[in-house]
Write a protein that binds this DNA or RNA. Structure first.
Lengths: 228, 228
DNA sequence: ATTACTAGTAGACGAGTAA
DNA sequence: TTTACTCGTCTACTAGTAA
């Protein structure tokens, strides 16, 4: 997204246009943005065109509201600031062990994935992933983790089927090294898929529904050290 | 600050240039900013000129670092995002009762101040302010409070002496209504000066060094309702 | 009051290139 | 390889003004 859009959307959000329609004239917005009424008017039209803003153009005063797509973009910037000011080198994600769909395990145990895991993360995953449903309050932290570079596990083709690229992030559960794996096109936004050389449920004596803390390692250096 | 500066500084901070010199070529920065090497080079020169960046121009690779002034600007934007995504209508500031310098009380009991307090906040302050030193972790929240409009108490002149503008923010301590007052040019960055119609120390039985929570009211509407 | 068009201008950007 | 100059283009802005 264009940075000037983010700037305008942020100011509109501060004026209250994030979950309600708010009456903001182009002059007022211009003042908030440090620009002329004309330019603010144009900016509003651009934001409407980009579907970042919806408007209720009344007779006297327009009322505007930020769309979900715009909130998402703003949250990305917010997460950048959190990375700058809040986070050190690790993030704790709290969640509940979810009933695995099993499918994740099928994917990850494909040999090309396994070989890359061993080369890049130095362990061969146990055949099966632990699924953790992250609590709502920590979804923002999860977004931050996903915004990090991580370790890229390349995709491949086999028997005419495409296995997509996967990003892995070093992590720990109760001091056991593991990795959070995020398929290129993951559908479950709040589910962590975790791979480990051990059978985590057995090793840690945890069952579906138990609460766990997953500590994701964010230090970029640790992900970079290559096979010697 | 120019928004394009903030954008560049944010990306440099994410690349690690916030508390260390970091090697970032103009091409790398250009990639991060979605612009050409030439433009990124120019942006760096502009930031150096504006004292938002310092540089160690080595033979092969330049190393850059963000200045404190730039961090301050970034923190302002961070606080805007916190207001958007974190805060509801109140902020709790934790701190310790500090030994009052007494001077705050002298200022606030000036009649022109007192009259405005009564007109705008509906109470006459007890002659004396309660000083609370906010814990380090809550200084960010304090900045957010100060970034809100608040209630403006106009300055005045008396006997050739200038009494500056003061901003007041509605607040509560242990359910007693009070106000945080911030002189236009306040020197103590971590000290809250609190005024109340009661003698707070006596009423609440608190002494220097005691820990207190000050709940600042951020809802903009409550500050706007005028004298009827 | 508003919103938003047109026209003119300043400045932001990238290509080419030097050091 | 770097950084950063000049220069041409194009875009983003404001002023004037209409509706």
């Amino acid at each position: 997204m264009d940075e000037k859009f983010a700037f305008a959307l942020r100011k509109i959000a501060l004026l209250g246009g994030i979950d309600n329609y708010v009456a903001v004239s182009s002059r007022e917005l211009g003042d908030a943005l440090g620009m002329s009424q004309q330019s603010a008017s144009k900016r509003i039209l651009e934001l409407l065109d980009a579907k970042y803003l919806v408007r209720d153009l009344g007779a006297r005063r327009q009322r505007i509201k930020i769309t979900d797509a715009a909130v998402e973009e703003l949250r990305k910037e917010y997460n950048e600031y959190r990375r700058i000011f809040e986070l050190t080198d690790q993030v704790t994600l709290h969640g509940k062990v979810a009933t695995g769909m099993g499918e994740g395990g099928y994917y990850i145990t494909q040999k090309p994935y396994m070989d890359q895991f061993f080369a890049k993360l130095r362990f061969r995953p146990f055949e099966g992933t632990l699924n953790v449903r992250v609590v709502k309050e920590d979804l923002g932290k999860l977004e931050i983790v996903k915004s990090m570079p991580g370790v890229i596990i390349d995709g491949f083709e086999k028997d005419g089927r495409t296995f997509g690229k996967v990003t892995a992030y070093k992590a720990r559960i109760k001091n056991i090294d593991c990795a959070i794996v995020v398929p290129e096109r993951s559908h479950y936004e709040d589910i962590l898929e975790i791979v480990c050389k051990y059978h985590l449920k057995r090793t840690l004596s945890i069952n579906d529904g138990d609460e766990v803390d997953v500590i994701a390692d964010l230090s970029p250096l640790s992900a970079e050290d290559d096979v010697s």
